[in-house]
């Protein structure tokens, strides 16, 4: 049962949708049903009174290659994504999606919903997309803007979509990555948050040219470990560099943990384990690729 009264609109064009979502109290429903839970628990915005469903607007549930970019429509579900052949090129994303075993969540979670609603279910996917340097295509009535996914995570705190903006797609740029991985620490699924880390690396001659490390589940929104990334540039991934550089730098990163019921020390310890394991995995993969 939902306690608040709601109006519901299902426009058939983007223009109609943009007209609606610029108004106060209007919330987009991308087919992701995470919002429904919030409505039932009364945790959604108290000013919300109208849902704007995108389900009738054509072209928002497609996956396309355009200009060497992979474009994921906002209403693409995780199932659609998992079943798409393009996913083979993005192991970090495939592995992140695989951490969500519940078929309902796969069928009714969308890439757009990930940014509209946030929440623990979406954290692995957002982390993977951040690690892939994905951008969000945000439409307003007069323009189209591309925002890096990092925009939506201010030091691990969730940043909402710009007012009146409609997220039409998420775009993954062409990648020159040598290796990527999503590593989950979750075992008794459901007992605790889905902790994990997305990691991608581009190397030449065993030297790191580019690296992305994004922790998921620890903070409200996945958090990019820029300090660690910068420290690793130009280095080779070895047990020593992982321990002496990466883990040491991680200790300096401010992590606003969201789960107050767990000791911060334990969460920080887990973050270190995740980072260590992800980098070790990348090191192994890149070594294998070379040999």
């Amino acid at each position: 049962m939902i306690g608040i009264k709601l109006a519901y609109k299902a426009p058939e064009t983007l223009k109609e949708a943009l007209d609606l979502i610029g108004r106060e109290g209007h919330q987009v429903l991308t087919a992701d049903q995470a919002l429904v839970n919030g409505l039932k628990k009364g945790t959604s915005s108290s000013s919300l009174h109208t849902l704007v469903s995108l389900r009738k607007i054509p072209g928002l549930a497609t996956i396309d290659y355009e200009n060497n970019e992979l474009r994921l429509g906002t209403s693409i579900t995780y199932t659609d994504l998992l079943n798409h052949q393009a996913l083979a090129h993005y192991p970090v994303l495939a592995q992140a999606l695989a951490t969500i075993p519940d078929p309902h969540l796969r069928h009714h979670s969308t890439v757009g919903g990930a940014l509209y609603h946030g929440g623990p279910v979406h954290a692995p996917v957002i982390a993977a997309l951040m690690a892939l340097d994905a951008t969000a295509v945000v439409l307003t009535r007069d323009k189209e803007t591309r925002l890096p996914l990092q925009y939506f995570s201010q030091s691990g705190l969730r940043v909402l979509l710009p007012l009146g903006g409609l997220l039409s797609a998420i775009v993954i740029p062409n990648t020159s990555l040598n290796a990527s991985t999503y590593l989950s620490l979750n075992q008794l699924s459901g007992r605790q948050r889905n902790y994990g880390i997305a990691a991608c690396v581009a190397q030449s001659d065993q030297t790191i040219d580019q690296i992305r490390l994004v922790l998921a589940g620890f903070t409200e929104q996945p958090i990019q470990l820029k300090r660690v990334e910068e420290a690793l540039l130009g280095k080779t991934l070895t047990a020593d560099s992982i321990k002496m550089v990466a883990i040491e730098q991680l200790e300096q990163v401010k992590l606003p943990f969201q789960d107050g019921s767990l000791p911060e020390g334990y969460q920080r310890h887990l973050a270190g384990v995740a980072l260590n394991r992800a980098l070790t995995s990348l090191a192994k993969k890149t070594t294998q690729a070379v040999s």
Partner: peptide
């Protein structure tokens, strides 16, 4: 589909 998680209109 968990039917408690979906609006009927959807």
């Amino acid at each position: 589909t968990k039917s408690c998680q979906m609006l009927a209109v959807e």
